[in-house]
Design a protein around this nucleic acid. Sequence first.
DNA 1: TGCATTAACTTTGTGATACAAAGTTAATGC
DNA 2: GCATTAACTTTGTATCACAAAGTTAATGCA
Lengths: 100, 100
Amino acid sequence: MIDFDKLDKTIHEKGRLSIMTMLASRGEWKFQELKDQLKMSDGNLITHLRSLQKVGYVSTKKEIKGRKITKYLLTRSGKKAFKEYLGLLEQIVTQGSSES
Amino acid sequence: MIDFDKLDKTIHEKGRLSIMTMLASRGEWKFQELKDQLKMSDGNLITHLRSLQKVGYVSTKKEIKGRKITKYLLTRSGKKAFKEYLGLLEQIVTQGSSES
DNA sequence: TGCATTAACTTTGTGATACAAAGTTAATGC
DNA sequence: GCATTAACTTTGTATCACAAAGTTAATGCA
């Protein structure tokens, strides 16, 4: 039986899952890029990013020169947590496709 | 880019996802069996089952003889929706594991 | 010098909902 | 007829996703 208690609630939410997937697929994303791709409001996006930072999955890089630009990326711990989350998804896919 | 809008919100919630996974892996489950396996309260479990029924993913079979027993199973539409949901999970796993 | 513009926020309000606890109904078996 | 059990229903609470609007600070152009 799959242990659904292990399913990371922070990652599992749709908005944050899409953020995590993007960050995992490519190193760094600007706030604006995430916003454009995911079509989220400023408030919603920043809130999700904040909660991902709070649990230590995401960090930021600030541009020093020019207009203020913030880039978001996964931390080591974020990569690990996401990997584990994907492991669980794989289990679900496998079990769900078995159709016994 | 993965289309996260297609991610079925009814299925995606942890509790209902675990129910759907169980129902997909084996034909019929008694209310009691689901409750024991998933360690949910009566109220929580029945509420999730109701919302799955409401969207037509789950149906019931009642025992006619003996103590009242209700069995839950996926409908055709539920199987289809779950399959599509799993398709999206697969995309996420694939993209997430690519680590470009 | 100052004004419009833009990025990245913060604040606030609302509606939805996961979940637990406790109560209800109806049937069984002793 | 009384305790027990399955399958609910009802109710309350706390969380949280999301949008809208306001804030701050920096830029570049008039």
